[in-house]
Design a protein around this nucleic acid. Structure first.
Lengths: 331, 331
DNA sequence: TTGTACGCGTTATCAA
DNA sequence: TTGATAACGCGTACAA
């Protein structure tokens, strides 16, 4: 692996000064056409390529790379965000470095530090469920920061959220409107921001309709498909619930599996769409977040901060949409 | 946004020489404990952070970033690859910059150029379906290169492939073993490497069993769910096929939709697993590729090349696995 | 063990 | 319009 030709090599071969090559490479116009041609020839004959890392250490210059820290790139929710961010920043000439925290606070912090050492121009982040270090412990300067999906304590950053409470409200309300009277909440721990918001919307809809609210109807230990399926099986067998609001994907799929095993079902609405939802029978109704829009919005916020916008940080709460496919109906 | 403190600032505040700070930061041992403490204090009080971009331009030093160019990060196939690559390279201290080509050759080449200008230590690539520039047109030096999913013309690079032909052979053979006699091939254009391999395996199984091979059974225009559904509908309505080998995800899902609409079905096996496959009725049998293993293998190859391994490039063909869930059976 | 001086590839200043 | 020279932040000979 021979070493790369440098601007100096190009200058030497073209018989011009270093700075002239720099000008040519950076597309400046005030250049003699003959020199330009000599430079062009030297570049192609040497196979010269810019060294952006070297360029980026100059004062006022940046890496034109944006860092994204999410939970797990192989999770469709996060990969949709990543792709949306990539599309927007690419259109502005930025590369995207992606990193998965696995929701582990220490790992998240390590990745953030590494990205800052790499001098990314902005950080777009999904805060980990298990926060280790808070942002006020991070010494400045910190690059422009945008949070997705969840807020984080003690940060000065733009935040892009889904209307979790509103979506849960709409789903619960729809189940009640279809004649259900005891709607169960099946989800994960309420210490998770999105869960707590969805739970809030669920309670609010019950209250709004004057419907039954019993602790036995709220289940916050559905950490896996299997957990969710077991919970739903119990709910149906003891007849305590006559409809289910599944507060995330796993809970919804678990409910479908339980229905299939039991051979009977109750009205169901899930939160967050998934590939299988329209394909199962009955097709699963969901509260849909526009995940790609969340990514695009975050990317645009990051770019405008890079551009120098120093106005107060904003919170963007994006609407959710209730997609009814049949599973919300009584059997 | 004030500017970052540098090693020089730390040296000044700590009252030591620049080089001593460099030694401390790089974890060298031969350092006076008192100086080490003064340096540590200066670092925390200033909020000093290394500038890895600056470090990387030194001769013999590298960016410790690996570039990944895939088709579309929001596609589960690619995001699984990306995550697997990320896990492996992260464990070795590398960051991962991911970029989506959308299978567009020009875009792919642009991204490759950009990543090389950023001086990534290796490139892991899924060649685009529409190749624009071949690798022998890229001037050296080129970083270590690993190809995933498809070969590319004129490259010196390690390649990681799935055994597409073998998987298709096994699927077709299973359908024949279940008593089908006219197995249709529903897929995309045979100009796509993986499609042509799967088609080859399909033909080979037919020949091996002495089964019917008719041009009317081979359909290579299933570019979307809808295309596939239409093709399968026709095949069932005119009775020309009594089993379907769906050569990719979209074709398999399209077949399921057609079955549902028609109210009847024939034995079906798809290629490449998908989230909904076990959830629909009947659960869809598939040829499964270990996509994560492909990513891990590619990452390990890249790392060993970075490590200096300059042996001949290798081709790794990973086994596929036939997962039978019920859809391969006669109704 | 610590420090000096220089170079990495690039861009910016300023004079020619 | 072009060029000589000085940074940018860091690591490495080599000397002290």
């Amino acid at each position: 692996m021979s070493s790369s030709p440098t601007m100096n090599d190009v200058a030497r071969v073209a018989g011009v000064a270093l700075k002239t090559v720099s000008r040519y490479v950076n597309g400046e116009t005030n250049i003699n056409p003959q020199m330009a041609e000599r430079i062009r020839d030297a570049i192609t004959s040497l196979g010269y390529r810019r060294n952006l890392a070297a360029a980026s250490i100059r004062p006022g210059r940046t890496s034109r790379v944006i860092g994204l820290v999410i939970g797990d790139l192989s999770n469709p929710y996060y990969s949709t965000i990543a792709r949306a961010v990539e599309s927007v920043v690419d259109a502005h000439g930025f590369l995207l470095t992606t990193a998965s925290s696995d929701e582990n606070g220490d790992r998240h912090d390590r990745l953030v530090d590494r990205l800052m050492e790499q001098r990314v121009d902005a950080l777009i982040i999904v805060p980990p469920k298990n926060v280790a270090r808070t942002w006020d412990q991070v010494p400045p300067p910190v690059p422009p920061l945008v949070l997705i999906d969840r807020p984080a304590p003690g940060v000065r950053a733009d935040v892009v959220l889904a209307d979790n409470a509103g979506g849960a409200f709409a789903a619960t309300q729809e189940l009640l409107a279809q004649g259900s009277e005891r709607v169960a909440f099946v989800g994960d721990a309420l210490t998770i921001y999105t869960m707590s918001e969805r739970h809030r919307g669920y309670l609010s809809a019950l209250e709004h309709a004057g419907a039954v609210h019993a602790d036995a109807l709220v289940h916050t230990r559905a950490h896996s498909l299997e957990d969710a399926a077991a919970i739903v099986t119990t709910l149906l067998e003891n007849g305590s619930a006559d409809a289910i609001f599944a507060a995330n994907n796993r809970a919804a799929i678990g409910a479908v599996l339980a229905f299939r095993t039991l051979g009977r079902r109750v009205p169901l609405i899930g939160f967050d769409d998934f590939e299988a939802a329209p394909l199962v029978t009955p097709a699963v109704s969901v509260v849909s977040q526009d995940v790609a829009l969340m990514g695009r919005t975050a990317a645009e916020l990051a770019l405008s901060r890079i551009d120098g916008d120093s106005s107060e940080p904003t919170v963007h709460t994006l609407d959710t949409r209730l997609i009814l496919r049949g599973s919300e109906l009584r059997a």
